[in-house]
């Protein structure tokens, strides 16, 4: 695969004594969508959180192996975790806008990064909301509270908020699982458009969503990476029986 954005070498993660990820090795290509699938507890969300060191926030976690983002091991002790998270945005299952105006939700990150010029912030807000495919819906109500938006709008606002700090990589943990089909379809369309500029990694339980939105799919089971390949191959002729059993619903 050319243009590898993230290279994972023998990455293992322990919650105390329990090994939750077992020597994961994989290459995540740049400007593509990579879907992580697998049953609950298989380690896919844990793996996703490794990519921006979110697991640092959980006590008792230890990690071995390497997670190279653009060639830099993000677990190296000289690496500044705040800088990593600036480059790697994250969108969660449940939309979590700040209890502020729509405008302030987007402007919050850039402000923290030292941008205070109103014109510059206006520009970032518009660009981010446009990229999140929600500008037309919100442009006349930027001062309204973000909490008054629908679930689907809140989630796209959160994606916009992520884009406002210009990350390279976007991690999405079940971004559409709480949304209706129309909002889901908007998020999926958005993912498709965003991959031109960003590397996207999405965790989903929805097999069809993985099939529709991703270029590559990785199947996890019990902390192991069972198979990774082009989505088209995984969903038409998977190499491993466990993958076949999972995607055809014959698991366990």
């Amino acid at each position: 695969m050319k243009d590898i954005k993230i290279k994972v070498n023998d990455l293992s993660l322990y919650y105390g004594e329990k090994k939750a990820l077992n020597e994961i090795t994989m290459d995540i290509p740049a400007n593509k969508v990579t879907a992580l699938i697998g049953p609950s507890g298989c380690g896919k969300s844990t793996f996703l959180r490794c990519i921006n060191r979110m697991n640092d926030l959980i006590s008792n976690v230890s990690i071995t192996g390497q997670m190279l983002v653009e060639g830099v091991d993000i677990y190296d002790k000289n690496v500044d975790v705040v800088n990593i998270r600036k480059k790697i945005g994250m969108v969660f299952q449940k939309s979590n806008p700040f209890p502020k105006s729509i405008y302030e939700n987007i402007a919050y990150g850039p402000r923290i990064n030292g941008i205070n010029n109103k014109a510059e912030l206006d520009e970032i807000v518009e660009k981010s909301l446009r990229q999140a495919a929600i500008w037309d819906e919100l442009k006349d109500r930027l001062e309204d509270s973000a909490l008054g938006l629908s679930g689907g709008q809140q989630q796209r606002l959160c994606i916009g908020r992520t884009l406002a700090v210009s990350p390279d990589i976007i991690l999405m943990d079940e971004p559409a699982s709480a949304l209706d089909p129309i909002s889901t379809s908007k998020i999926e369309e958005l993912i498709h458009e965003l991959k031109e500029q960003y590397t996207i990694i999405i965790v989903t339980h929805n097999m069809q969503q993985a099939a529709r939105t991703s270029d590559h799919t990785a199947f996890f089971y019990m902390g192991n990476l069972i198979e990774m390949g082009k989505t088209n191959s995984i969903f038409t002729k998977p190499m491993q029986k466990q993958t076949e059993d999972y995607i055809t619903g014959r698991f366990g």
Partner: peptide, 9 residues
């Protein structure tokens, strides 16, 4: 059912 893999084939 949106069949995949061997089911789809």
């Amino acid at each position: 059912k949106q069949p995949v893999a061997s089911d789809l084939r």
